[in-house]
Design a protein around this nucleic acid. Structure first.
Length: 580
DNA sequence: GCCGTTTTCGGCCCGACTGTTTTCAGTCG
């Protein structure tokens, strides 16, 4: 029997929450399981260790009962309570809940009264007109369910990569800003928090007449279909990527509170509302009100947090992972790294290995973005599939880098390498070559199948080479595509801290590696980071923004990120780190 | 089910939208 992992535990807790709702249980009891699932999903520590040490109950929202259940699930691989609960309900009912607009109550009616045991049976029942005959359902719900089934099938992996959605959302936002009467507009939701994947796009705008904005929005060329439209909200589906976009339009005096409301996260809001309550205030998307009904003036989000007696919390931090306590005590970092702090981009490939643009094209692209340097880090010889360079190729490449540096002004290409960390933990070049390079990133590209002990030893071994400056994409994951290779991250970061190895926050949208939780783990140990673009073409330099966002979500400050330094200082700091 | 410098009991975040209903329940965020 395989031990359930964190994802499986989270799923069981969510299922219990749904089953309790079907049962008509106290809704707060059901919500408690949901809250616990959120808390565990956002954990940066190892769940297994937490359970073994009996520290699960220290997490807010997890008490004796849920801690016991999680423990049972992790140690025995089963949970009797869950199995008993599930047996009370028809099979397949939990699958039905996955269909949009079908919640636990309706799903249960369909399963009980029509014997529907899954999405296929549900579709059949709709087509045969049996759903509309049920009390509480009609022709419209039947059609809506059919549409939901279609959507469910089309988007089994419903969340999309941050880097995939961001450009589309920004384009739409620009068009909304020019719609009639629009005063302010912003993206909201998980996109604004820069979560690694997003389910849909939230846009918030202020204007005197919502209808005029909705009209313009509905006619945008990107829009395939208007799904719904009310007084303050309009939902559409885009042609591109089947993406749903919700646009809210409100009077400008409500903009800040609405923006805050629709930025989330849910967990962050629940906590804030509790705090507001203690202060005799009530928070909703329509503003902050005193208990006597007086509405408070909230011009922007800074004022919003000030009214609650706390520091401003940037969107990337709003996950209820300690930011609220920190903001109340005034110890939230005010110098979180920003794009403006970044002097140069780390980790770029060119046509010398598997990149699509020449060195000069990459340099000009970096120059156009106002960057002062770009580290050229091609693949090394072992990476044959990616056109890895032999040691002799490097010398010829350096000549070209020198030429480009003479030609393209204002930006400097640094001589680097993304050297393979071989199975043994050795690096793929001789020390004689490595010591001549300005930037050495070491990455794992092959043999992902090693077990946790082997993989950890492989990385720790690589850290013993004094010429390695930076550990590249430390877990090798590809979001929604490839699991991270198993590695004891605590051990890796401990040694990185001890030996002065810098760790990459890779901004490629499918990587985002380190991920948020690991960034925090690294910073707690005093590990220095770089934010990188892992560019394989000129346009990939934009990935830098996603690396910065991930670093911010992990609470990284300017001083934690080495490529906030000017080129020369960046190079000397990388060396000094290793010498220390 | 969780939680507590007012509480170990009695609270727990709030509102929009939709469809089915003549006043509300379910779903979503």
């Amino acid at each position: 029997m395989t031990t359930p992992d964190k994802t499986a535990v989270v799923q069981v807790l969510r299922d219990i929450s749904l089953l309790l709702q079907m049962k008509g249980e106290n809704p707060f009891r059901s919500r408690a399981y949901d809250t616990a699932a959120d808390r565990i999903a956002g954990l940066s520590e190892d769940l297994g260790a937490l359970v073994r040490e009996g520290r699960l109950q220290e997490l807010p929202g997890i008490g004796q009962a849920i801690a016991d259940k999680v423990s049972e699930l992790l140690t025995t691989g089963k949970l009797a309570y869950y199995d008993t609960l599930r047996a009370e309900f028809p099979p397949g009912v939990l699958e039905l809940v996955q269909v949009p607009d079908l919640g636990p109550k309706k799903a249960l009616v369909l399963a009980r009264q029509l014997g529907v045991d899954g999405v296929d049976a549900l579709e059949k029942a709709c087509r045969e007109g049996r759903v509309r005959q049920l009390s509480g359902f009609g022709e419209k719900s039947e059609a809506k369910i059919l549409a939901g089934v279609e959507l469910y099938r089309r988007t089994r992996t419903p969340r999309r990569l941050l880097g995939e959605v961001m450009p589309v959302a920004e384009r739409l936002l620009e068009s909304i800003k020019t719609a009639p009467g629009v005063i302010r507009a912003s993206v909201g939701g998980s996109l604004r928090r820069r979560a690694e994947t997003v389910g849909d796009v939230d846009l918030i705008a202020s204007a005197p007449d919502a209808n005029a904005v909705f009209d313009a929005f509905s006619r945008a060329p990107e829009v395939a279909q208007v799904i719904g439209r009310g007084e303050s909200k309009c939902s559409v589906r885009l042609r591109e990527k089947d993406l749903q976009v919700d646009l809210r339009v409100l009077p400008d005096e409500d903009f800040a509170t609405a923006l805050h409301h629709f930025t989330g996260s849910k967990a962050h809001h629940v906590r804030l509302r509790g705090l507001a309550h203690e202060r005799g205030l009530k928070i909703s998307e329509w503003g902050i009100h005193r208990d006597d009904g007086t509405k408070l003036h909230v011009p922007d989000e800074v004022a919003f947090y000030r009214l609650l007696g706390m520091q401003y919390i940037p969107p990337e931090l709003r996950e209820d992972t300690g930011e609220i306590e920190a903001a109340l005590e005034g110890r939230l970092p005010e110098d979180l790294v920003t794009m403006e702090d970044i002097q140069g981009a780390v980790h770029a490939h060119s046509t010398w290995s598997d990149g699509k643009n020449s060195l000069e094209e990459m340099a000009r692209a970096a120059q156009a973005l106002g960057l002062k340097f770009l580290t050229v880090t091609e693949h090394s010889q072992a990476a044959i599939y990616a056109g890895g360079l032999k040691e002799d190729d490097l010398r010829r490449q350096w000549d070209e880098i020198d030429r480009v540096n003479d030609t393209v002004k204002g930006v400097r290409l640094l001589k680097g390498i993304e050297v393979d960390i071989l199975e043994s933990g050795a690096l793929d070049y001789s020390d004689g070559v490595l010591e001549k390079l300005e930037v050495v990133i070491g990455s794992i590209h092959v043999r992902h199948g090693m077990d946790e002990e082997q993989m950890t030893r492989r990385l720790l071994q690589a850290f013993d080479n004094p010429h390695l400056h930076i550990l590249g994409h430390p877990t090798g994951r590809l979001i929604q595509n490839r699991e991270p290779y198993p590695v004891r991250m605590e051990a890796v970061l401990d040694k990185a801290a001890e030996r002065g190895v810098v760790v990459e926050v890779n901004g490629k949208p499918e990587r985002l590696d380190l991920k948020t939780e690991h960034v925090r783990m690294a910073l707690q140990r005093g590990v220095k980071l770089v934010v990188s673009c892992d560019a394989h073409r000129a346009s990939d330099l934009a990935n830098l923004a996603f690396a910065v966002a991930t670093a911010r979500r992990g609470w990284a400050r300017r001083g934690d990120i080495l490529n906030t330094l000017p080129a020369e200082q960046f190079i000397t700091t990388l060396r000094k780190q290793r010498a220390a």
